[in-house]
Lab assay of single mutants.
Amino acid sequence: RKEMTAACTPRRRIINLTSVLSLQEEINEQGHEVLREMLHNHSFVGCVNPQWALAQHQTKLYLLNTTKLSEELFYQILIYDFANFGVLRLSEPAPLFDLAMLALDSPESGWTEEDGPKEGLAEYIVEFLKKKAEMLADYFSLEIDEEGNLIGLPLLIDNYVPPLEGLPIFILRLATEVNWDEEKECFESLSKECAMFYSIRKQYISEESTLSGQQSEVPGSIPNSWKWTVEHIVYKALRSHILPPKHFTEDGNILQLANLPDLYKVFERC
């Protein structure tokens, strides 16, 4: 597991931080080997919608929660590849102030007048994250320049770009939802926020969305749709870069829909 690298990086740093090793061990302890084997050997059937997909393993048909699986995938990559990410360069710098204002204007932020003026909160978020810029760049390849612009994001899987519609809320939550006081809790909560931002979430995906850094293989055609990215990038990574937690067998994120021999018997009677 320590050699797990989802995106190509030129050289690998050895990380011996106790906090990170502890988080890696927790993933191992909570892992479910049968689910790992199923995901490793599954045959992708198709997307139901951005949140759900169908896959077959041996004779069984499964309904998989793409949102939760991708979130767990990105969390584990962030923990196992800690401080070893490439950088996704933004085509132009994104001012943190503008991103924070967009987030505060969104109902998702939960902002009320009692929280104070949005401009003041946005300025605080910019200054707060600028103070964390060195650590964010060093460990997470999340790059913020001296003017308070976001200029780079971590490359977690080759050819995958997170849904940038979720970027404003991500920046807001970096400042408000991460435990910045304790090292282990900081790395864990920061990785979880980043994983949620990178995950496939239906509120940020339309039929026209593209999450891939590449064009489709047909010359002159439109960019790959999110469905292509889910199948050929995300579920491909799920084959080798995730140890599913045991609770996925109990919380409805992986559901067995049918045993195909039983279905064949039904059709034979028709």
Rank of each mutant, 00 (worst) to 15 (best):
T9E: 08
A83P: 10
I171G: 00
I125Y: 01
W226M: 03
A7R: 13
L39I: 11
P163Q: 05
T229M: 07
L104C: 01
Y264A: 03
V34S: 08
M38K: 10
L142T: 04
S221H: 09
E123C: 14
S91R: 08
G166V: 09
F170C: 00
P50S: 08
E177Q: 05
V218S: 08
K192R: 09
L88Y: 08
I205W: 08
L96M: 07
S191N: 04
N49K: 04
E108Y: 09
I151N: 06
E72H: 08
P219I: 09
E146T: 03
K2T: 13
D98H: 08
I205M: 08
M4T: 04
E182F: 14
T9K: 06
K265M: 12
N253R: 08
Y80A: 03
G110H: 01
P219H: 08
I151R: 03
D158R: 06
G46I: 02
P244I: 10
G148W: 04
R13M: 13
G46L: 02
A175V: 15
K132H: 08
D138R: 02
Q58L: 12
I27Q: 14
I169A: 14
E147C: 08
L54C: 04
I14G: 08
P50C: 04
N41E: 09
P93Y: 05
E92Q: 04
R12M: 14
R201D: 14
L238S: 11
E188A: 04
V234Y: 05
D98K: 04
L39E: 14
L23G: 15
E113T: 05
E29K: 05
G110W: 12
T176P: 00
F140H: 04
V126P: 01
A175Q: 07
S189W: 03
D138L: 09
K131S: 13
P154D: 00
D115G: 07
E108W: 03
F170I: 00
W228N: 07
A6L: 13
P261I: 13
A7Q: 13
F85N: 13
I171N: 00
K60Y: 11
S109R: 01
T112L: 15
K131F: 14
I27T: 05
H247I: 13
L260G: 08
Y160A: 01
M196Q: 07
V87W: 11
I79H: 15
G110M: 02
H40W: 13
R11M: 14
D138K: 02
S191D: 01
T176D: 01
E147M: 08
I222C: 06
V87L: 08
L88D: 02
E37R: 13
P245R: 05
H32T: 07
E119Q: 04
A53S: 07
L243W: 14
K60Q: 11
L121S: 01
A237D: 14
S19G: 07
I222Q: 07
L255E: 03
N49G: 09
D145H: 01
C186H: 03
F97N: 02
Y235R: 06
N84Q: 11
Y124S: 02
A100H: 00
R36C: 14
D145F: 01
E29P: 13
L21Y: 14
R201T: 14
D158G: 07
R1N: 12
T229E: 09
L156Y: 01
H40M: 13
L23M: 10
Y139W: 03
L21Q: 07
L88P: 00
N253K: 05
V218Y: 10
V178G: 01
E72F: 11
S91Q: 07
N65W: 00
K246E: 12
M196L: 13
N41H: 07
K68F: 14
E217R: 10
E72V: 08
Q51N: 05
G213V: 09
P10A: 09
V161W: 03
N259H: 09
A94K: 02
L255D: 08
N149R: 05
L129P: 01
L69G: 00
S91M: 10
S106A: 07
H42M: 11
E25N: 12
P154E: 00
F97Q: 02
Q56W: 03
D105F: 09
Y264G: 02
I151W: 12
L88N: 06
A100C: 02
D262S: 08
V218A: 07
A7I: 12
P162E: 00
G116E: 03
A55T: 08
S199E: 01
E29M: 13
R13V: 14
L96Q: 00
L69F: 13
F187N: 06
R13S: 12
V161R: 05
V266W: 15
L99A: 04
P261G: 07
E114W: 15
E113N: 12
S19Q: 05
N259P: 04
M101I: 09
S19F: 12
V266G: 15
H57E: 06
R239N: 12
L54E: 03
V178I: 08
L150Q: 00
E37H: 11
P50D: 09
T249A: 09
T112I: 13
F128P: 01
G166M: 07
V34F: 11
P261R: 13
N65G: 04
G110K: 01
L96H: 00
T9F: 11
S216E: 08
K227P: 09
Y124V: 10
M135V: 02
K236D: 13
L164P: 03
K118D: 10
L243A: 10
N159T: 08
F82H: 12
N16E: 04
I79C: 06
L121Q: 01
F197C: 01
L102T: 03
E3N: 09
N49S: 11
N65S: 11
L136K: 01
K68W: 14
D105Y: 15
A53P: 00
Q215I: 08
M101Q: 03
E119F: 15
L150C: 06
L174K: 00
L69M: 11
N41T: 10
Q215W: 12
N159H: 08
